[in-house]
Amino acid sequence: MRVLEHPDVEEIRLEAVLHALSDPMRLEVVRFLATTENGAACSEIDLAVSKSTGTHHYRVLREAGVINQVYQGTSKINSLRRADLDELFPGLLDSVVSAATRRPRR
């Protein structure tokens, strides 16, 4: 089974999280994942970018510690690292999701 690298909780840095959240496509991923309980495959999240660009966005989110990705067959299942982010930066994720939900989608 292939395993993807994720930062440990103590390695998650605010500046990396804020950078990851600064892109509209990555915000769309976070907004979508905030509405799911069991995560979602990349193909379930409709991004208006090429597959390779989408892969880049998911990698930035994962390496910043915003999402968790695990292989399930040939799909990557994505979920928010809500507990970790809420512990490190209380209220940040809720504020970001709320703001992203209020803004018009592209």
Rank of each mutant, 00 (worst) to 15 (best):
E5T: 15
L80H: 09
H57M: 10
N38A: 12
A41K: 15
L93E: 00
R31D: 13
L92M: 01
D86F: 08
E28C: 12
V9M: 11
L47K: 06
K76S: 07
F32Y: 11
H56L: 08
A20D: 06
S75R: 14
A64N: 09
H57K: 11
D46T: 15
P104S: 01
F32Q: 10
R2V: 13
L85R: 02
A41G: 15
A64L: 12
L92W: 03
S52V: 09
L85F: 03
S98L: 00
N68C: 10
V17R: 00
H57D: 07
L92D: 02
L4N: 00
A83M: 08
L47P: 04
I45G: 03
P104L: 09
L33E: 11
L85V: 01
F89I: 03
G54F: 02
T53I: 08
L14Y: 08
V49W: 03
T36V: 14
G91A: 10
T53Y: 04
L47F: 01
P24K: 00
L61S: 13
L93S: 00
G65E: 09
G91C: 11
L61E: 09
F89G: 03
S52W: 08
D8M: 13
L85A: 06
T101G: 12
V17E: 03
N38S: 13
P104Q: 01
E11F: 04
T101D: 08
T35Q: 14
R82S: 11
V96T: 02
G91F: 06
G39A: 10
K76D: 08
S52Q: 07
G54E: 05
L27A: 06
E37L: 12
D46S: 13
P90D: 03
V97E: 01
E28F: 13
L61H: 15
L80I: 07
E63R: 00
D86E: 07
L80D: 00
A16H: 06
S79A: 13
S98T: 01
L27R: 09
P104H: 06
T55L: 02
Y71E: 01
P104N: 01
L14T: 10
R31E: 15
V70S: 00
T101K: 14
G54C: 07
S75Y: 14
T101V: 13
V30G: 03
A83I: 11
N78V: 12
L61W: 09
P90L: 03
M25C: 07
K51W: 11
A16I: 05
A99I: 07
L4C: 06
R2L: 13
T36L: 15
